[in-house]
Amino acid sequence: MLEHILPFIEGRLKLKEITSRSNALGYERLKLKLKQFIMGWVNYFRLADMNKLLISTDKWLRRRLRMYIWKRWKRIRTRYTMLKRLGLNRSNAEKYANTRKGYWHIAKSQILSCTITDNRLRQAGYTFFADYYKTVKV
């Protein structure tokens, strides 16, 4: 049983390494590394029926990306400016820019889920497992 789960665990560990907060790749190199990993991983396992697994992995990956982006917006002023740019009103942008909660906690918050949406991540050029799986499914 463990043999079937092991590749998925190794895949998550590799994703965790790629999207690490201390990773200084920058957005473009991060997108490229994620795309290469996702394409290779999905092509390797494309014969398996794994849509539910990919959807849950995509949720986790999007949260990791929001955490990565929030970490890159280090200063309060930058966070405020970016939240305003993404459509948040002034008072909420001030409140959430000044938060002291951890990166992982904020990545799951409603504010980042509403401002850094799934569609915005796709438009920015990020590739997700389920999207790519739909294109290569036999």
Rank of each mutant, 00 (worst) to 15 (best):
Q36F: 03
K84S: 06
K33E: 06
L65F: 14
N119K: 03
K101P: 06
L112E: 01
K71D: 10
K95V: 11
M39T: 13
A97M: 10
H4I: 12
G40N: 14
Y44E: 12
R29P: 01
R90A: 07
Q123F: 05
N89F: 11
Q36V: 13
Y96L: 07
L121V: 00
L83K: 08
M50F: 12
N92M: 14
N98L: 10
R63Y: 02
Q110W: 04
N92P: 10
K59V: 10
M39H: 15
R46S: 09
G125H: 08
H105T: 13
I69A: 07
T81S: 10
E10R: 13
Y68Q: 03
L54F: 12
L25H: 08
A24Y: 08
N98K: 15
G102C: 03
K35F: 02
A93M: 07
A48D: 06
L83E: 00
G11A: 15
R85T: 05
Y68I: 05
T57E: 14
I18G: 04
S22N: 10
E28Q: 07
T81R: 15
R122W: 00
L6T: 09
T81G: 03
E28S: 09
Q36W: 04
I9F: 06
I18V: 09
E17K: 13
S20F: 14
Q36Y: 04
S22E: 00
F45T: 13
R100H: 08
D118N: 06
R62A: 01
R122Y: 01
K74Y: 13
N23H: 13
Y44Q: 10
L34R: 03
N89Y: 09
F128S: 00
L13N: 11
N23Q: 12
R120Y: 08
R66E: 01
K95I: 11
R62E: 04
R12Q: 09
D58F: 11
R90V: 14
K16Y: 09
K108T: 06
L13D: 12
M50N: 11
T115N: 01
E94Y: 09
N92H: 15
R21W: 01
Q36M: 11
N23C: 11
Y126A: 01
Q110P: 06
L13G: 00
Q36N: 15
R64Q: 04
R79A: 01
Y80F: 13
A124E: 07
Y126M: 02
T57I: 12
T19M: 07
L25W: 15
N92R: 15
D58M: 06
T117K: 00
I69K: 15
I5R: 13
R72S: 02
T57A: 11
P7N: 08
L112S: 04
E17S: 09
K101S: 06
R21P: 09
R72M: 07
K95Y: 10
K74S: 14
H4Y: 14
R63H: 03
N98Y: 06
M39R: 15
T57R: 03
S22A: 07
S56C: 08
R77N: 15
L15H: 03
K71H: 11
W70G: 00
F45P: 14
M82W: 13
A24W: 11
M67V: 04
N92T: 12
N89D: 07
E10N: 11
L86D: 02
Y27A: 04
L47E: 03
R46W: 09
L6A: 06
W104K: 15
S20E: 02
S56F: 13
Y103N: 07
D118C: 00
T117F: 01
H4V: 12
R21V: 06
K95M: 12
